[in-house]
Structures are given as C-alpha cells and as structure tokens.
C-alpha cells in the first residue's frame, strides 16, 4: 500500500508504540517518542467542538498528541486552540460533489493513509463512528462521456 511504498500493512488498532516499524509514513517518524490519539468529530455541531476539545485535551493531552478528525469547516475553532486537526468532507459535501470523485474509494484510502500517518494508539469517536461514515460514502455517480 502506498505508492511510494512507505505505508505499512496495518489496521486501525495498531500494536504498542514500541513496535513502530522502520520505513513508516509516520508524521513523527523523526520524533518517535510522541504517541498520538485520533479523536473523530463527525457530524458534531460546531458549538460542541470547543467542549470536546477541552474534554479530550484534559483526558489525553498530557500523555499523547491529539489529532482531531472533523467534517466541520469551522477551522478557526481548532486554530484558536492550537489543536491539530484533519478534515474529511461531510456527507453533505460528498453528496454535492458525488459526480466528481469516487468518495467511497477515496475516503477509504484516505482513512488508511491517516492511520499510517499518525500511527494512533487509540481512535476515539464522538458523533458518527468512522466506519459508519466510511461505509456511507457514495460511489461516483455517472457523468456524461466518462
């Protein structure tokens, strides 16, 4: 997996941090001491984001880096709190642009990329579960002459 051959074959529940293999895509490959937790915030109201950030920061922030996975466009909320976040287009956005890309294929690979990038020790879900989100992603709808 991975066109450049760096992504390891791993699933969402990785092994213990000490087992980090060589040649990974990991974003902190040069800084192996840090561990990461992904917090998914899919389908969450914008107002609730602040609260979730506070809660999770208190709970995990001391031992791990937290990466938020959001489908909200309100990036400043994360920015203002210096929170690291990744964005996935929401179900509505996917539907609006279903003729332009095959969302189910793309998002599935994107998720695996994110996991390999962040090498999370935990994945915690708020709002919609990531698997449900991925399963609901539409295939590419027909375009003329494609």
């Amino acid at each position: 997996m991975g066109i450049f051959g760096w992504l390891p074959q791993r699933g969402p529940k990785p092994a213990a941090p000490d087992d980090a293999p060589e040649q990974t895509l990991a974003i902190y490959a040069s800084q192996p001491a840090l561990t990461t937790v992904i917090v998914t915030l899919i389908g969450i109201e914008a107002e609730q984001i602040d609260e979730i950030i506070d809660v999770t920061a208190r709970r995990f922030g001391k031992k791990h880096r937290i990466v938020y996975l959001t489908d909200s466009l309100d990036f400043m909320r994360f920015r203002d709190r210096n929170a690291i976040f990744e964005y996935l287009p929401s179900a509505l956005e996917q539907k609006l642009h279903a003729a332009e890309i095959s969302w189910n294929a793309y998002l599935a690979r994107r998720w695996r990329l994110l996991v390999s990038k962040w090498q999370p020790v935990h994945v915690i879900g708020y709002g919609q579960n990531i698997d449900v989100f991925l399963a609901a992603a539409p295939p590419m709808t027909a375009r003329t002459d494609r």
Partner: peptide, 13 residues
C-alpha cells in the same frame, strides 16, 4: 512535525 516527515505524508496524501 519535521518537514521531511511531513513532505513524505503530503506526497502520499
């Protein structure tokens, strides 16, 4: 993140 690590990820993404 270290720029090199980041670029590696960026390329993949």
């Amino acid at each position: 993140a270290d720029p090199e690590d980041w670029n590696t990820c960026l390329a993949e993404e």
